[in-house]
């Protein structure tokens, strides 16, 4: 058995020569992700598209039109330099409404993802880390929650409460953390018995330290993948709810509620039903593609 001598030197960061440094660069996770995105034109297109959609939604106030100002004299106008996508049944500039609707859809997607990811990560880490009986009880609860017809319950909640964007975000977030919890939990289960975690524990690392430094950090690639999928899901769910009339209350609109109005004017103005749907499709598609590219980029590392 060879002897390992521990000196103060052992605890110093590795000193690399510039050449070694050069070699080590390009091996990190970020580099892998960057390479995967560069290799896939669809992935680049998705990122560019999402940036464009987000920026234009954020810059909506630059539009000369008020999204909710009705002008019945100008209803159902055709596409013109003044109204890029025409006007709707109340004479409101449709392009402006799509931009503002994007704010709502994107905000709901992003913030409910944050809520579900945070809850799911914490819950999954605790459950997987504790293991044993506590884990069993916690995971059974997840099973129960997954057996709830969540869509119906979300609709009921939205019907009994006065909904606005914030309540919508919370309701969607609170009902969609379970799959994240399952993923993180199974990561935590395997990670906690790995040598580096045992080493950390041996060196006096607290549970909190291990959870955040080792488990969550090592599960982060999985968490990121499921986060971008859950944005896609949340945007879809919001659109369905708003389409059914259980989302944001008028005159605030999201892409989903615009489709609800559009369906009523389907005979006169079929275009009105096309644009918001295209926006939902492109946004959700981009998030799904990005999630897939991330997964393939990050998975080889997980297999090791």
């Amino acid at each position: 058995m060879s002897e390992i001598t521990i000196t103060e030197e052992s605890f110093q960061p590795l000193k690399l020569s510039p050449e070694e440094r050069e070699q080590a660069a390009g091996q990190g996770t970020l580099d892998q992700v960057r390479r995967a995105f560069r290799a896939n034109p669809f992935a680049i297109a998705s990122v560019v598209l999402l940036i464009l959609i987000t920026l234009s939604a954020l810059l909506a106030p630059l539009s000369p039109y008020d999204p909710d100002q009705m002008d019945l004299a100008a209803k159902y106008e055709d596409i013109s330099p003044a109204h890029w996508l025409g006007t709707d049944n109340y004479g409101r500039d449709y392009f402006t409404r799509i931009l503002y609707g994007g704010q709502v859809s994107l905000a709901v997607g992003f913030f409910s993802m944050l809520i579900s990811t945070v809850i799911g990560t914490v819950y999954g880490t605790v459950s997987g880390y504790l293991g044993g009986r506590a884990d069993m009880v916690m995971m059974r609860l997840v099973d129960v929650l997954l057996s709830i017809p969540s869509f119906l319950v979300i609709v009921m909640l939205n019907a009994v409460m006065t909904t606005n964007v914030v309540t919508l975000i919370f309701i969607i977030g609170i009902f969609s953390w379970m799959s994240v919890a399952r993923i993180v939990r199974s990561e935590a289960m395997t990670l906690k018995s790995r040598d580096f975690v045992l080493a950390s524990r041996g060196l006096g690392g607290s549970s909190w330290w291990i959870a955040q430094k080792h488990i969550i950090r090592n599960a982060s690639s999985q968490i990121i993948v499921s986060a971008s999928l859950s944005i896609a899901k949340a945007i879809l769910l919001e659109s369905v709810l708003s389409f059914l009339g259980f989302g944001v209350a008028p005159p605030t609109s999201s892409w989903g509620s615009m489709l609800q109005t559009a369906q009523q004017s389907l005979l006169y103005r079929p275009q009105m039903a096309i644009y918001p749907g295209i926006m939902i499709l492109l946004t959700v598609l981009s998030f799904n593609i990005i999630a897939d590219v991330l997964r393939t980029a990050l998975e080889p590392k997980l297999m090791k």
Partner: peptide
């Protein structure tokens, strides 16, 4: 990819526009 990303109700509206109207 398109199939998992398209809102089913919007696809339904498109079908209705094309095939019924």
């Amino acid at each position: 990819y398109v199939g998992i990303s398209i809102p089913s109700f919007w696809f339904g509206i498109l079908l209705m526009l094309l095939f019924s109207l």
